[in-house]
Amino acid sequence: MLIKIKRGWEKPESAVTPEHLFWNRRQLIKGIAAGSILAGGTALLGGDAVAQADPSSSLYPFKKNDKYKAPRPVTPEMLAATYNNYYEFGSSKRIYEAAKALPLRPWEVKFSGMIEKPFTLGIDDLMKKMPLEERVYAHRCVEAWSMVVPWSGFAMKALVEMAKPLAGAKYVAMKTFMNPKVAPGQRAAWYPWPYTEGLTIEEATNELTLLVTGAYGKPLPHSMGSPLRLHTPWKYGFKAVKGVVSFEFTDKRPKSFWEELQASEYGFWANVNPDVPHPRWSQAQETVLGQDEKVPTVIWNGYGEFVAHLYKDIKGEQLFM
């Protein structure tokens, strides 16, 4: 017997909260509490306060690039924006509000290490120099859940070319901001803050590798790593460092935040592979956010045609951890 239970998200379009109401429900409640629906209404008409303060918001939406296909429909924005690992702001997934404490401007991005000439660039100037586009990619978390997001950003290849690395540079290390005043997680001084991640130059300049400034046709919400984060769709999500302030080119393999914490569970390569379990759980399947049924995980998260060749000649490394 097949019993079809209607899931929570299986709702008619008419039941969907209009986006401006969803993002401003606090102002709405405040407005009502103040006994002034009018005041609340004005705040609503003003739109998203974050988008307003963000000088890059007029650049959106970016031109769509349809070359890369995602395996499933786009995840509802509300789920993608409110279910996030961002340990700087707390160890639960509900950091959407807490992460808003991070000031996004001025936002200086530092380029250093083995490049022709180290320099610093504000995020808005950086965006002006980069070929902005939108791509729909799947995101597979190491915790065996996944989503599909229309990311806005630019190919990291363009950023590497701008930085002009020296011939000896083999890796790019990326670091998150460090600001324990607004990021309570960073007050636990025994963790290896700031969050660090790294790619080989070949990975960083692969056509898939995206530096992300927005999603769903708008600047990123704080919770998703605004104003600048990485996305490597064939790797587990923890590689996708958020709130990036530094790119350092180096000949030494960087040790990432999670590798420092637990090298036996989280490695440098972290490529998606259903046949290599995490020591504490299987990676064979994944929960798609907003969907109860699990789906099988695919090697390289389905992006093998673009990246599998990168690893052909690498021997003796744990590529899938």
Partner: peptide, 9 residues
């Protein structure tokens, strides 16, 4: 009531 987030189980 679907208030447990996207992975209720």
């Amino acid at each position: 009531a679907r208030t447990l987030g996207p992975r209720p189980l």
